[in-house]
Write a protein that binds this DNA or RNA. Structure first.
Lengths: 205, 205, 205, 205
DNA sequence: TGTTAACCGAGACGGTACGTCGTGTCTTACC
DNA sequence: GGTAAGACACGACGTACCGTCTCGGTTAACA
């Protein structure tokens, strides 16, 4: 009376196919956009049977999420150091501005933008994927802000009663929203301003 | 030298069908979700031919956007008169907290949440719709924050050099991101904290 | 309690529209073929409202049948004499061969062929139209053969016990079938042979 | 330099689906008539996806043609062995009359009439299908007449200079036309008369 | 000489079917 | 047993016409 929906045997999995599927998925999303990217299209481009995709992933979004995670790991490995680091020069404002400027650059990189937007969009409407996206991609990066802000609290540059997990949203979320929803253009000047407003508040002192 | 792709005659448009289509679209999105909502489903539920939808709208997202806009107008008309208002008691922090708490309530209202998320998600991946969504829905509401902040500047409660269009993002965007992307839970306490941080900054005084 | 399906008033009918509809129908059938000819297409080409067609005809086939009949009348009128005539030189074989050769010519005239085939095809599958087609178009022409054969019987060139209505089919039907069903090519030589076989039989004397 | 429009793999074809499609097509044509028979209707009745029809046939007419051919093969297989046979008792007139009477019976059999008329009608207006219809269905049967007439020529019952392919039309085509175009009723007496006229001619001896 | 009822053009409407595309499942043959 | 290939049932797409229906605007017979 054993289950018949054969659990795939990971040890026999074809590494070759997996790589080809990642590449195809990322390429198609970049070239024709997420909505026009199809499982059949990925399979065909990767020279792979459809079943091979359905065996290992549950949906188009799932494929793309893993492909995107893999892309990040590849990039980090290539760069040859820890995937996530955050500058700590002692000057909090400068460090934040630097990281946000780098984020702006990333947002403008087409290779990053297409899959990133696609996953974000899917996550808005598909809570499960959304939470996975946050847990695996977003939160680890936000945690770096938390760490840096705690270090700033130790140095007395941030009030000790401030919750770093909330504070970081003051500069990260506005940028994210402008980028995701096209509410307004993004620029270095803008992110610098965000840091200034957030650190010092907008009320007169 | 005129275009030949016959523009439909707006004066002959059936008001009855338009209403039925709005109702069906909103109901279906709420009941079965945006991805499972189809043009055929809307047409069938509205008792309308598919062509009647394609004649007046260009896509499922377009239908939903107009339906949602109409819903807002209907609601405003039914309730008071002015569709958009913002409290101005003289106490900026209190006013902001009140509005944000109302926004939290709205975000938890299923009738609002389903179409709203769907449109936001679609806008992330479809720039044209995204910009339309912002222009017709988001920006008018953000403008109310701008006005209130300017009034606060006149009262000396906000530094005169602060750009209100950027400042408002300090409390609006974090909430938006938590809701859209499920990065963290939302609550009155959270929005209150955002207002406090944003108004006073997080650096020690 | 009178019927509400207003019987159209023939006296007020627009002659202009009728002509335009006939012309459009015949032109479209010749240009794009009967199956691709649509009521909307005819209306549009004739510069006429769809309702004007539906008011006076019951179907596409009906329009075409009348258009074709009208075409015949026009042609006869233009030729300036009786629409149907049949030579009677006293030489039955020669007369029949001449008429059949003329029929072959007609079958090869594109202006005649397209609508003629279309009506015949429709008549095969739509008994009512088929009978109307026969009664109004085919039978009057076959009657001329009957008359000529009777004249031949009077002259002693055809056995008196022969039924002319059946006899005529011996040369008319084979030609018709070859043309309608593409069973074999048609030519003067072929029709001449048919006349010879039919008149003299195929058994040795 | 090979074509890229993926030719389906015939070896993987579902025999089950093909049979179901044939049955559904023939049943629908018999029940509701050819014009009201739709691809969707056939697919639905056969419990088959539309694509499965489009994969193997190019049109409704094509499906019906193959279904009809298959029906003939099935019937022949079920009955005797040889699909096409023709009596040869030595009495040409009797043999022809027998076969034509059988044809009259067939023409009155609803199971045969509906698809047969539909295909004939389609063939009138669609030359390609018409020629296929003739080549696969009509001509093989006409060839039997040719053979029988040649045998009669050997026996001296038909003049040696007569072309059998033409001669057979003297009795076959009139019957075909009366049936197809409703030009006149058909009966045993009528077909008997045709044979008499054709064999002996209509001119006095 | 207005009035008015019908035809007329135009085309929106609720429908049905089209032929295509993609889904997720299944089967086949290969490795 | 994983794999490339692809047939299959299914469902939705966006388009084309169907036949019905309104909507002004002519137009001809009657008041």
């Amino acid at each position: 009376m054993s289950a018949n929906q054969s659990v795939p045997d990971v040890t026999r999995r074809s590494e070759r196919s997996r790589r080809a599927i990642y590449d195809a998925a990322l390429a198609l999303v970049a070239e024709i956009g997420y909505p026009k990217t199809t499982i059949e299209g990925i399979a065909s481009r990767a020279g792979v049977g459809k079943q091979t995709i359905y065996r290992w992933w549950s949906s188009k979004a799932d494929v793309l999420l893993e492909a995107f995670l893999d892309l990040g790991e590849q990039a980090a490995e290539a760069a040859g150091q820890a995937p996530y680091t955050f500058p700590d020069t002692g000057d909090l404002a400068a460090d934040l501005k630097q990281v946000l400027r780098a984020t702006v650059d990333e947002m403008r990189d087409p290779a990053f933008e297409a899959p990133s937007r696609a996953l974000a969009a899917e996550g808005v409407v598909n809570e499960e994927l959304g939470r996975e996206f946050v847990a695996k991609l977003l939160e680890p990066q936000l945690q770096l802000y938390v760490d840096r802000l705690r270090s700033a609290q130790d140095a007395g540059d941030v009030r000790p009663d401030v919750d770093p997990r909330i504070a970081l949203e003051l500069f990260v979320s506005p940028l994210a929203q402008r980028w995701l929803q096209y509410t307004a253009p993004i620029s270095y000047e803008y992110t610098d301003t965000l840091v200034d407003y957030a650190l010092n508040g907008i009320a007169p002192r």
